[in-house]
Design a protein around this nucleic acid. Structure first.
Lengths: 182, 182
DNA sequence: ATGGAAACGGAGCAGGCGTTCCGCTGTGGG
DNA sequence: CCCACAGCGGAACGCCTGCTCCGTTTCCAT
């Protein structure tokens, strides 16, 4: 089995897809990913039999990254800083990675692959909110679903024209934080 | 000139497009709009030479509606109620009309046709914010761009699956209001 | 009633997408 | 070193889109 070149091609495809998805969203044509990777479409399809699988592979990395951030937040002894940090990091990522957004907002197929991770994140967020509430830093009546809604709002903004989205995302993140704080 | 049937067909096309766009977004195929209107595609194209023109025609109605709401808010003597009302009405509309969202967020071509109305709305919003700030009901540092960012966030949420978007939009609207209030 | 133009419908065109097929290339075990 | 075959590139297929062409229908002035 001649793995050397095949494996290197696979890596190049994943790298090209990662960049393309981050920059232009998940709807980049397969031809374009292949072109960026410097391979033919057939090569791409040999490693990823369907578009969905390529997308899932690239997103898996990103989702894993988010898990790391979450665990870091859980280690923070300051409840407000932990929660605010999650919101800010999330916003920051949305600014730089368009794919992440569509993983959350995309209809069924794409997001479905990460149900487990998603539940894990939700669990962690619940913990952060409970701690923050116990510390009295949250406005009355605010619950984890409010924070989730805020995060979704931030994520959705990624679809704005790139020129303005960064600033708007920053403002909304501040708005959300002001809206949940006591 | 045989206007009777032509005119009635035009009306049916606009009505069909309005419904289809509100329900399924601006990306509904022309064939589908024609089918819903009970006419052939050629008829549709005779009245609207290009897809963009059909979209613009339908959105013009919606944008005009928003202008009415804005003027109503300007007449409200209570500055907070006026501003909060705008946010709430806007959120309510996003829930029921998917097209409105894409008019705001869609890239260039679509939104460009309404620059004038948009500026008018922006102007009105500025007035509302200035009044609210003068009345001391806004948190320090909040400006019109923050409110605009909040509205954009609400609008962006329309792309979530229909099942959850209504509730999430409601929560975010509350979050935004909490975030700007003193 | 009747002619002719305005208006119609649906087949057809060009272009873009995801995916597949197939003849060639170049790698690495013997 | 050499040649079998894993692996390759790009042309091709089927489907969907916006849009156009043209033979046929239908209204309305006469």
């Amino acid at each position: 089995m001649r793995r050397a070149d095949a494996r290197s091609n696979r890596d190049r495809v994943v790298a090209a897809a990662r960049e393309a998805f981050a920059a232009a969203g998940l709807e980049v044509p397969m031809r374009e990913v292949a072109r960026r990777a410097g391979v033919g479409v057939a090569t791409l399809y040999r490693h990823f039999p369907t578009r969905t699988e390529l997308v899932a592979t690239v997103l898996a990395e990103r989702v894993a990254d988010c898990g790391v951030q979450m665990r870091r937040a859980l280690d923070d002894p300051d409840p407000w800083r932990a929660l605010a940090g999650v919101v800010r990091v999330f916003a920051e990522r949305q600014i730089h990675d368009r794919a992440l957004n569509e993983a959350l907002l995309g209809p069924g197929a794409v997001g479905a692959a990460f149900q487990e991770e998603r539940r894990e994140h939700a669990q962690a967020l619940n913990v952060l909110v409970v701690r923050a509430r116990a510390a009295g830093v949250l406005r009355g009546g605010v619950d984890a679903d409010d924070v989730r809604a805020g995060l979704l709002a931030i994520a959705s903004l990624r679809r704005l024209p790139a020129a303005t989205s960064a600033r708007v995302i920053g403002r909304v993140a501040d708005l959300v934080l002001a809206g949940i704080r006591a």
